[in-house]
Amino acid sequence: MTAVAENTRADAGTQTDDAPGAVASFEVTLKIRRYNPESEHGENVIWDEFTVQAHGTDRVLDALHKIKWEQDGSLTFRRSCAHGICGSDAMRINGRNRLACKTLLKDVNPDKPITVEPIKGLPVVKDLVVDMEPFFASYREIMPFLITSGNEPSRERIQSQADRDRFDDTTKCILCAACTSSCPVFWTDGQYFGPAAIVNAHRFIFDSRDEGAQQRLEILNDKEGVWRCRTTFNCTEACPRGIQVTKAIQEVKRAMITRAF
């Protein structure tokens, strides 16, 4: 960590780093939605503000760590790899779903308090942690694995690079739930499969080696399936991996009509 934490409630003066060659530091306030399932005071949802010193390359996750490690150990969030590949720390930052480890503080206007909330549409467990089980249940339902028939080949299956490229975009998914929990349909209807499950169905439907496309299309033809998508593009904007989520959903819809994949 690069800087010292300051408690908001104290009068924190602006700090500067005078060391030659040092990156300039700035003060940033995070406004965090807290939920304590074991609260003794009855009121278990509150907004808490913390101010920390940050440096130019610090991410929202760094600020959360500074708060947890130096001010309030009870602040609870998931994280692991800290560089956008494990998918643990999707949260709502200034009203938009992002990964805390991939969002630089300087890119979310640190002059004003930055609001941090749990992703929406999934039950909150504690602070920024939500119950991911409904999300993974939808994922499991679309049969997210290669389905083939006949004998296993003795060498690799042959696949042209063009066929491989056909589903490349959707292989990038890290199951962080940023897309699904940004979808207004999912917010109001928890039964909807949601973008992430459809993205993972797409990854197999358009894999030339796979023979399970019909089954998956049947599953997604359900009233809670792809037809619920109203192309608001929130999912595409939210995806930290840059997957064209809405496009993938449209391709699945088209495959359902044309039966071409």
Binding site: E152, P153, E156, R157, S160, Q161, D168, F204
Partner: peptide
């Protein structure tokens, strides 16, 4: 065989 999408040579 489990489905891993490896990059491919021109021969696939």
């Amino acid at each position: 065989r489990m489905g891993l999408p490896f990059n491919r040579t021109p021969e696939g």
